[in-house]
Simulated assay, not measured.
Amino acid sequence: MIAARDILNGRDACWLMDCAADAMLVIGSDGRVLLANPAAERLFGYSLDEFCGLSVEDLMPRRFRAAHGDKRADYAGRPEYRRMGSGLELYGLRKDGGEFATDISISPVENGHVLATIYDVSSRKRLEEEQKRMIHELENVNEELKNFAYVVSHDLKAPLRAIGSLADWIAADQHDRLDAEGQEHLRLLIQRVRRLDALIDGVLRYSRIGRAHEAANAIDLNELAREVIDSLAPPPEVTVSVAADLPTIRAEKTGMQQVLQNLLSNAIRYLDKPEGRIGINCAEQADCWQFSVADNGPGIEPRHFERIFQLFQTLHPRDRVESTGVGLSIVKKIVEQNGGRVWLESSPGQGSTFYFTVPKTYP
Rank of each mutant, 00 (worst) to 15 (best):
M1R: 09
D6M: 09
I7R: 14
N9T: 03
R11N: 13
C14Y: 05
W15C: 12
D18Y: 00
D18F: 04
D22S: 12
D22Y: 10
A23E: 01
M24I: 15
L25P: 04
V26K: 00
S29F: 11
G31R: 07
R32Y: 15
R32Q: 06
L34M: 11
L34G: 04
L35D: 07
L35T: 11
N37P: 01
P38H: 11
A39R: 00
A39Q: 03
L43M: 11
L43K: 02
F44C: 00
G45H: 12
G45T: 08
C52A: 15
G53Y: 04
G53F: 05
S55Y: 12
F64P: 08
G69W: 13
D70P: 04
K71D: 05
D74F: 10
R82V: 09
R82L: 13
S86N: 04
S86L: 00
G92P: 07
G92A: 06
D96S: 10
G97C: 10
E99V: 10
S107T: 15
Y119C: 07
D120F: 09
V121G: 05
V121A: 05
S123A: 12
R126I: 02
E129D: 13
E130Q: 12
K132E: 15
I135K: 10
E137M: 07
E137K: 02
A149E: 09
V151D: 14
V152N: 00
S153C: 06
L156V: 12
A162I: 11
S165Y: 04
L166S: 10
L166Q: 11
D168S: 14
D173P: 04
Q174S: 06
A180L: 11
G182A: 06
I190G: 03
Q191C: 06
V193C: 05
V193K: 02
R194N: 14
A198N: 03
G202Q: 04
G202D: 10
V203R: 07
V203E: 08
V203L: 11
L204W: 08
S207I: 09
A212K: 09
E214I: 14
E214D: 10
D220Y: 07
N222W: 15
L224R: 11
L224A: 05
S231R: 12
L232M: 13
P236G: 10
V242E: 01
V242Q: 03
A243Q: 06
T248Y: 07
T248I: 13
R250V: 14
E252P: 07
K253Q: 15
M256V: 04
Q258D: 05
N262H: 15
L263I: 13
L264R: 04
L264K: 08
S265V: 14
N266R: 00
N266L: 09
Y270S: 09
L271A: 01
K273L: 12
G279E: 02
N281A: 15
D287K: 12
V293L: 02
D295M: 09
N296Q: 02
G299F: 06
R303G: 12
F305I: 04
Q310W: 14
F312R: 03
F312H: 15
P317Y: 10
R318G: 14
D319C: 08
D319P: 08
E322V: 15
E322G: 03
V326I: 13
L328R: 03
I334W: 05
Q337H: 11
W343E: 03
E345G: 08
S347T: 02
S352Y: 13
Y355S: 04
F356E: 02
T357S: 13
V358N: 00
P359M: 02
Y362T: 06
Y362L: 01
